[in-house]
């Protein structure tokens, strides 16, 4: 057995020279990076496949790009796109607003509110969206008039349901109510993910109840809520195509109308597809920056934006290149 002695050995005891049996200075050692030939093979195969796909998109006449170009920015399509965006915005805003209320009810100490919220979420997650939409669309069969007044007592105002609930209203109502059930669960998950010490500290400082929620808890919950919420908004955006069954002229309905007339199914489906992709991209980029905003304080430093990452990568590549060109001299 060898005895290990440190450099701080007591005087009189000789310290062991840790470099005695080494032929070179360890500080002069250089690293040779390992090679990964299979990575190159995999990358090359992938690139060939991608090239074949792109080639197909360009050369296959079936895609019919001239027709695509003709309809991509046609006024009717843009108008339908606007309606799709409106449905998404109303559905999301109303859905998440009601979702917050439902989540707070489920987390409240009041058993009636808890039960009502639980039942709502149970019901609206159980009913297929399309069935629910058709119910709203046909609401006038169930209730001919809506009235405002004292419960079980006299009413002050009366509306004709058919006059109030148009196809658009039915669609927004259906989407929002459906969305609220899912949003409520996402928001609840976010709220319970916040450390209970935060609420305790806020209570100990005497911060008013509403302020505790909006200033202390919700901003921290947002970190857990946002990725899921963005998922929901994106899925709602595409999900609006379901209201085409109610003859509402949103994007998908509109392209169906056009290809029903001219028979060019594929290019018109591509019109809708590309618009869906474009706007989903915009939403995704938005999501990135909103998440970054709420990451404040969660990490020691904010993550770099993609642009900053590219800049940094370029700097390291340049630095490496300069180093290797100097390497020969050294």
């Amino acid at each position: 057995m060898t005895t290990i002695r440190t450099a701080h050995a007591p005087p009189g005891v000789p310290a062991i020279d840790a470099r005695a049996d080494l032929h070179i200075d360890p500080e002069d050692l250089t690293v040779v990076k390992s090679r990964h030939p299979w990575r190159w093979v995999a990358a090359a195969t992938m690139l060939v496949l991608v090239a074949m796909f792109v080639n197909g998109l360009v050369t296959n006449p079936g895609w019919d790009w001239p027709t695509f170009a003709q309809y991509f920015t046609a006024p009717a399509v843009l108008k339908a796109l606007l309606l799709t965006i409106q449905l998404t915005v109303y559905g999301s805003v109303l859905g998440f607003a009601l979702g917050i209320v439902l989540a707070v009810c489920r987390l409240s100490k009041n058993p009636v509110l808890q039960t009502v919220s639980w039942t709502y979420i149970w019901a609206f997650r159980s009913i297929p969206l399309i069935v629910q939409l058709l119910f709203w669309f046909n609401i006038a069969y169930l209730y001919q008039t809506l009235s405002l007044g004292i419960p079980f007592g006299p009413s002050f105002f009366e509306f004709n349901v058919n006059g109030v609930i148009s196809g658009m209203t039915a669609a927004v109502l259906g989407l929002a109510l459906h969305q609220a059930a899912y949003s409520a669960e996402i928001i609840r998950a976010g709220i319970i993910s916040v450390d209970s010490g935060q609420l305790e500290a806020a209570a100990a400082l005497g911060i008013p109840r509403r302020r505790q929620f909006f200033r202390i808890i919700l901003p921290q919950a947002m970190r857990a809520i946002l990725p899921n919420a963005a998922n929901e908004v994106i899925s709602l955006f595409k999900g609006t195509s379901i209201v085409s069954t109610m003859a509402i002229a949103e994007l998908f309905y509109q392209v169906q109308v056009v290809y029903g007339r001219n028979g060019r199914v594929v290019p018109l489906l591509m019109v809708a597809t590309v618009w869906y992709i474009l706007l989903t991209t915009v939403l995704t980029i938005g999501q990135y920056y909103v998440e970054r905003h709420y990451a404040k304080g969660a990490q020691r430093a904010l993550p770099l934006t993609p642009w900053q990452q590219i800049q940094r990568k370029m700097t390291t590549i340049n630095a490496a290149r300069q180093e290797s060109s100097f390497g020969g001299v050294r």
């Binding site: 209570a203 100990a204 109840r209 404040k296």
Partner: peptide, 26 residues
């Protein structure tokens, strides 16, 4: 009432074992 309790607490400072600072605020 809760509001009165919160008001009372402002007269008592409490320091926690785990600090419980609000991480999203400076």
């Amino acid at each position: 009432r809760e509001r009165e309790i919160l008001q009372q607490r402002t007269r008592v400072g409490f320091v926690f074992q785990n600090f419980n600072l609000f991480p999203h605020l400076t």
